[in-house]
């Protein structure tokens, strides 16, 4: 079952001089098992949008349904619907607080009033998934870990809630290239192996181009583009309007094209881009063009 946003409008500080409408009549359906990226410049409404996905914010008008159930109600059914959606905030490692890694990850499941055995099973499985060895790390203070490891602990804490949908806000911000690569691989695996529906917000066009099946560009509280990467990143006019830049591979290849090399521009990894260039050069029949 999908997450559905139906004509959602959200206004901050309504009725005050600071009133600002951050979402304007947004409709969006996130299909089960999909991997969607949301991009847009600061203030475009993307964070407001994702905060609607598990009921942190409720629409000023319109509604949000998870598996057909509105997130707005106060009933048991509405609570369960909100729990379906796990949320990893920006810099989630800032929210770590427990004395040990295992205790921090167990905090969420404990609040679900699960049995001790079930909690331990979930902690083990979440740690295994983010590749932190249970025996090595369970009793370590999370504050002794590297930035990349701390972020993995924080993500494990959300995975231990076993949500059906996972929302990540800027999951790779501030990570070094190796940690970033590792984290993206974990997220792709969650999607592939555990069939989790994933929505992630990112400023990094390279990450989006490589990972997402579907790209949503936000601008001024509205959805400007909603398409697969192969189309979205070539909507030049809309990308400029949204204040976004093409992924580096696309920018590089179009620079080469401008310089006179007849190269196809739809490559999202360095490997693919190199292949496109080799193909273009061989076609021309020279070592360089």
């Amino acid at each position: 079952m999908p997450i559905e946003l139906k004509n959602v409008t959200y206004t901050y500080m309504k009725g005050t001089p600071f009133e600002r409408t951050a979402l304007k009549d947004v409709s969006l359906t996130i299909a089960d098992g999909s991997l969607t990226a949301i991009a847009g410049h600061t203030g475009s409404g993307k964070s407001t949008l994702v905060q609607h996905l598990n009921g942190i914010l409720h629409p000023t008008a319109g509604e949000v349904l998870v598996d057909g159930v509105s997130l707005a109600g106060k009933g048991k059914e509405n609570l369960l619907a909100r729990r379906q959606v796990g949320m990893v905030f920006q810099y989630p490692e800032q929210q770590l607080f427990e004395e040990t890694v295992a205790a921090d990850i167990a905090f969420g499941p404990k609040n679900l009033e699960l049995s001790d055995e079930e909690i331990e099973r979930r902690v083990r499985s979440a740690m295994e998934f983010v590749q932190l060895d249970y025996e090595t790390y369970k009793d370590v203070s999370p504050f002794r870990l590297s930035g990349g490891q701390m972020r993995r602990v924080a993500i494990a804490g959300v995975l231990a809630l076993e949500p059906a949908y996972l929302v990540l806000d800027e999951p790779t911000a501030g990570l070094d290239p190796q940690s970033r690569e590792g984290l993206l691989r974990r997220i792709a695996e969650l999607h592939r192996k555990k069939k989790l529906t994933i929505i992630f917000v990112s400023h990094n066009m390279e990450d989006i181009a490589r990972m997402a099946e579907r790209v949503v560009f936000m601008h001024d509280g509205r959805i400007l583009v909603d398409a697969p990467p192969s189309e979205a990143f070539f909507a030049d006019k809309e990308m400029r309007e949204a204040g976004l830049a093409a992924p580096p591979t696309v920018a590089l290849l179009s620079r080469l094209r401008d310089a006179g090399l007849a190269v196809e521009e739809d490559a999202f990894t360095a490997d693919e881009a190199a292949k496109r260039i080799v193909k273009a050069i061989r076609k021309k029949g020279g070592a360089t063009c």
Binding site: A251, L252, R255, L256, D258, A259, G260, L261, A270, D271, A273, A274, I277, V278, I281, A287, T288, C289
Partner: peptide
């Protein structure tokens, strides 16, 4: 990175390419 991959494919390029501009110049001079 792309210059490095292209060199591995046997395309002759200078060793010191860092920017898109330099790659464009080297490939299309």
């Amino acid at each position: 990175e792309i210059a490095w991959r292209l060199r591995k494919q046997g395309i002759r390029l200078p060793e010191d390419i860092v920017t898109d501009e330099e790659l464009a110049v080297a490939l299309c001079r």
